[in-house]
């Protein structure tokens, strides 16, 4: 059921939500409020991903679409339009599209606050154009969890670098989420008996923030020098852990099927496909407490992530290099990595 409200207020939207829920007869126990802060260009993809994720995490989705306007007259006016969607094929829970016109675009906080579910956790997601300091952003202060996506920014590496500078518990970035399958395969490889690791090498696309995070995470956990190698990708393409008996290597040349090589054992295939944004968001929503592993990687990356990219040279010697491959499409919102 859809209810359109023009020039409205949060109170009227709340009333519409109750009305919609009654009409549809849906009474789903919603577990969180997800606030998506975006613009007209990005909201469709983001909402689609969030709706899909809401099958796993029934939630109230508030899409904040800022329309500050171009002309002085538009900028001076202020109007709130809302579209309330309850039930139907949008997944579980409820969705409200909020269009903030003119001056109101700067005051999203006042619109969102009355619409949050009582008691339930709040997650804010900026699919692109995240604020410089998410935790200090007014909307960010409402949330337990603030999701950004460095890969969707114009300069992914420096975006990630600046996020490392302002990291606060509750921050998370989809560049980190994309690493989970890689990290779990590597960790399970080391669950088995293995020789001591003496060095590591991470290969990936030039502008891939996930690759940078992998470098920091490995360096932190293994306490060995980690070198960064640039490849054509897609995304992260290989991780090699050097040991005295040869390298433990996880190599994914095509973005789907990877090969795990362990010295003294046959090579094994492992599916490591690049996941959709919906899957990433679903993973993010699974845990709403601060992610300490991410915190550690970010803390170590402080002052390193952007700097290393600026030098455009591997951190340590060794490893093959290929041409730097700038990937503008990597910055597109919702691009899988």
């Amino acid at each position: 059921m859809n209810i359109d409200l023009t020039d409205t207020t949060s109170a009227r939207i709340n009333a519409a939500l109750v009305q919609g829920r009654r009409a549809v007869g849906a009474a789903v126990g919603m577990v969180l409020t997800l606030v998506i802060v975006t613009d007209e260009g990005n909201h469709y993809d983001a909402l689609k991903a969030a709706s899909e994720a809401s099958k796993e995490h029934p939630s109230r989705i508030l899409v904040v679409i800022r329309r500050p306007g171009r002309s002085p007259r538009q900028r001076a006016s202020a109007r709130l339009d809302a579209e309330v969607r309850v039930g139907g094929d949008i997944g579980n829970g409820e969705t409200v599209l909020l269009r903030l016109h003119g001056e109101l675009a700067e005051h999203a906080y006042s619109v969102v606050l009355p619409l949050l579910l009582p008691d339930a956790p709040v997650v804010v997601w900026w699919p692109a154009d995240a604020p410089a300091h998410p935790a200090r952003d007014l909307l960010g202060t409402l949330a337990q969890r603030r999701i950004t996506d460095a890969a969707a920014e114009e300069d992914p590496i420096s975006a990630l670098g600046s996020r490392a500078e302002v990291y606060e518990p509750g921050d998370t970035d989809l560049a980190w989420t994309r690493l989970t399958p890689w990290r779990s395969v590597l960790a399970s490889a080391l669950d088995q008996k293995h020789p001591e690791i003496t060095s590591a090498e991470v290969a990936g696309e030039e502008c891939n923030p996930s690759t940078e995070l992998m470098v920091q995470w490995l360096a932190e956990r293994l306490s060995v020098p980690v070198s960064r190698v640039r490849t054509e990708g897609p995304g992260l393409s290989a991780v090699r852990l050097g040991t005295a008996e040869g390298a433990i290597c996880l190599d994914r040349p095509d973005g789907a099927l990877a090969t795990l090589a362990v010295p003294g054992q046959p090579d094994r295939h492992v599916a490591l496909n690049r996941r959709s944004t919906a899957e990433l968001i679903a993973e993010e929503l699974r845990r709403l407490d601060p992610d300490e592993a991410y915190a550690v990687a970010m803390r170590r990356g402080r002052g390193r992530i952007g700097a290393e990219a600026a030098r455009a040279e591997p951190v340590a010697a060794g490893g093959r290099r290929s041409r730097p491959a700038p990937g503008p499409e990597e910055g597109a919102p919702g691009a899988p990595s």
């Binding site: 989970t180 990290r183 960790a187 080391l190 669950d191 293994l222 992610d291």
Partner: peptide
């Protein structure tokens, strides 16, 4: 019990699922 052997595992790192060994 595995931490001693596996530097990549950490109790705080809760994203990593349990994957069966070979």
């Amino acid at each position: 019990s595995r931490f001693a052997a596996n530097p990549l595992r950490n109790a705080q790192d809760r994203r990593l699922p349990r994957i069966a060994g070979p």
